[in-house]
């Protein structure tokens, strides 16, 4: 496994053009070794494209990619022997039996942990002798997960790993990811819309909007620095607050103000308290709130 200080994935200035349309516009991403890294973004932000380029399924138009310390394009085959990948839409030979798919993958990888795969099959109730075409959407997702963890990967790339899963299975999967994969020091890079679920397990997050990474930080830092302050005033409310350092947005709630603050929470709260008859209350934000703030601004500002 990689040391925490090493970068499992390093993406610099990544661009991708599809049919004249620039889908990735200089993506920069650093995923530390051994971390659980969540990539959030609205539909069409470029998350799947980024993951596919990391795996060299898509060819980059420009920029630099290093995966597990290796050049992402020149040594892609070697990289793929150490990476487990679950695609957004799992594709298999539909007429094949599940056990045949396992058998094929076992023979393709230099290492294959069949004991782990068997255990996942038991936990997920996967019909090993059944045909792939008979599986439900959720079971397909779980089969994709069992295949992704089979090669004992150093890096796990998961693209919407909770698609079609009920809350029970989702919880099971999260527990397995945390206890087993992250517990063994493997790096996990997840693209997901299930922000609440990911908040429980992610160490770091990045927000992608319209082909750019607009923010990349640890979850703890983000939850500490991104707050809202609800302020009521007996006298007139301060003007031009949008220009204050650290203030991202000011919304009116009747006579009160709801101020979204980034980083300088203490300073803004102190400044507000200085106004005549001001009463301030700090409100914690969830990762989903923070994402919506940033992604919403990113979409509006382009």
């Amino acid at each position: 496994m990689m040391a925490d200080s090493e970068k499992a994935v390093l993406v610099q200035g990544l661009t991708k053009v599809f049919g004249g349309q620039e889908v990735l516009k200089g993506v920069n991403l650093e995923v530390p070794g051994g971390s659980v890294f969540a990539l959030f973004g609205p539909n069409g932000a470029g998350k799947t494209t980024t993951l596919k380029i990391i795996l060299n399924l898509l060819q980059p138009t420009g920029g630099k990619i290093e995966v597990l310390g290796m050049d992402g394009v020149a040594r892609s085959q070697e990289i793929r022997s150490k990476v487990g990948y679950q695609p957004e839409t799992p594709n298999f030979y539909y007429r094949a039996r599940v056990e045949n798919i396992f058998s094929l993958c076992r023979s393709l990888y230099p290492r294959w942990n069949q004991a782990r795969v068997d255990r996942y099959c038991d936990i997920f109730d996967l019909p090993v002798r059944g045909r792939v075409s008979d599986l439900s959407k959720g079971k397909m997702t779980l089969l994709g997960m069992a295949l992704a963890v089979g090669p004992d990967p150093e890096l796990l790339l998961l693209d919407e790993p909770f698609t079609g899963l009920d809350p029970l299975r989702r919880r099971q999967l999260l527990q397995l990811l945390v206890e087993e994969m992250a517990g063994e020091g493997r790096t996990i890079l997840v693209s997901s819309h299930q922000i609440q679920d990911m908040e429980r397990i992610a160490d770091r997050v990045a927000f992608m909007v319209r082909g750019r990474v607009i923010l990349s930080r640890t979850v703890d830092e983000l939850l500490r620095d991104e707050k809202k302050i609800r302020a009521a005033f007996s006298g007139p409310a301060p003007e031009g607050m949008e220009g204050w350092p650290g203030v991202r947005r000011v919304e009116r709630e009747g006579s009160r103000l709801l101020v979204t603050v980034s980083g300088q929470v203490e300073e803004v709260a102190g400044r507000l308290s200085g106004y005549d008859g001001a009463a301030c209350e700090g409100i914690d934000q969830t990762l989903e709130d923070i994402f919506i703030n940033y992604a919403g601004e990113g979409l509006i500002n382009g």
Binding site: L57, T89, N91, F92, Y93, Y94, Y109, P110
Partner: peptide, 14 residues
């Protein structure tokens, strides 16, 4: 149609 190329190319196959 099958999307199998993606399945195979995500494995260590050149």
């Amino acid at each position: 149609q099958g999307g199998m190329m993606e399945f195979v190319m995500a494995r260590p196959v050149s």
